[in-house]
Design a protein around this nucleic acid. Structure first.
Lengths: 219, 219
DNA sequence: CATATTTGTGAAGCACAATTCACTTTTTGA
DNA sequence: TCAAAAAGTGAATTGTGCTTCACAAATATG
């Protein structure tokens, strides 16, 4: 028995286990935050023993960096698609913020829980990188809008960070927990979206169903 | 020896110790975040033994709730003074954001480190309350501005939260660490300030030395 | 000054949760 | 079917840092 080789079936099962661990971790974080997502709990949720986790991930920190990375990658893809899509920069910015906030509120998407929550240094570092990635999407959008004359000149680094900060706070801060009904969620989404759009200096405020109106007179 | 009474001198020394503990904790947090501020370190910094801490505070959590509360109270006082002061709502908002960001960047004021950092549930709860207190100051300002016709109607709860989130992110997020020179700090302060002012819907953007200009034409 | 009371000390105790490891079960290859 | 290899188990180990506590030092009272 020199040459041990995993059968394709086994290979698959292992990959499935790994994914189940990631999913379990994600679920627990979405449910109760990183605080609740202990190795034991993750293992139980995944239907494995705590020891088994360490066959798949070298440490708790690395596990959660992976969870975070995966969750954020999905979000970034969506944001990127919107940013690269059709329409004016204003329209795309509007859509990007709205879509992010809506998805976050819907949960258990948890990218948002991750952006905001604390953890061991290693995970923390990954979180900062992720916030930066989100910021970069907006930064690009801002540059385009400024070039197109839609937005006034501004410090795009700062504005991008402010946008990320603004909707994060609105999502995980004191406001969100009180926001339960679909009705009030919609209101929150609109409010945050409009806040961000105004913040980058769009002169004609956007109304619920946004369309470009070059000729719009301002009050 | 039935009726033991502390001499005034002793009373004073105890109060001084208590304050020294609070200061030590504050210093350590400002220096290395909550992560570094362990009971042992706080005790050493205060020139006491770890056991002594527990003569003054029932637990680490309560100690840090007190530290946080004290730090935030100072900030709120300043913000409140600005909010209640003279000038249009726009001017006061401008000044409030600018002043907060400037003070935070100056450090070791650490109110900001506290707003953003994680901790045990108890401290976390206090942090949320504090963010709400900051939000409330802006909320009032927004209401006034709307009443005065300076800002368009908007969800003041959401906008206030967004403002707090925006400058917090700009301060503790990815941007701030790179911001070292006074020059670039000034730029950051201006950028964040302008972002927030535009965000609430002031039609005429504010320039470094702000003045109201009703008639400003747009490009 | 003698004694009760409070304050200060810091090593020991404790709780909690990550990680390891001796062992069992399962899979693989002959 | 059997032995080597790998995967899985979960109780024991470990590390970390808050909290306690038996004792010492200081302070107050008679």
């Amino acid at each position: 028995m020199r040459n041990y080789k995993r059968s394709p079936l086994m290979e698959e099962r292992l990959a499935a286990n790994r994914q189940r661990i990631l999913d379990a971790a994600r679920t627990l974080v979405a449910r109760g935050g990183l605080r609740e997502a202990q190795i034991g709990a993750v293992a139980a949720e995944a239907g494995l023993s705590s020891g088994a986790i360490y066959r798949y991930f070298p440490s708790k920190a690395e596990l959660f960096v992976d969870v975070l990375t995966e969750a954020v990658r999905q979000e970034i893809e969506i944001l990127d698609a919107i940013a690269a899509g059709p329409g004016t920069a204003t329209q795309r910015l509007t859509l990007a913020v709205e879509s992010f906030v809506r998805r976050a509120l819907r949960g258990p998407n948890l990218a948002y829980a991750f952006i905001a929550e604390p953890a061991e240094a290693e995970v923390d570092a990954a979180r900062i990188r992720c916030r930066m990635m989100f910021g970069d999407v907006f930064k690009r959008l801002l540059k385009e809008g400024i070039a197109a004359g839609e937005f006034p000149a501004q410090n795009v680094d700062a504005s991008a960070a402010c946008i990320v900060g603004a909707y994060t706070e609105a999502l995980v801060g004191p406001i969100a927990p009180a926001t339960r009904s679909t009705r009030s969620q919609d209101r929150l989404i609109e409010s945050v979206r409009d806040f961000c759009v105004r913040a980058v200096g769009v002169s004609a405020p956007i109304t619920p169903t946004a369309r470009t109106r070059k000729s719009a007179a301002k009050g």
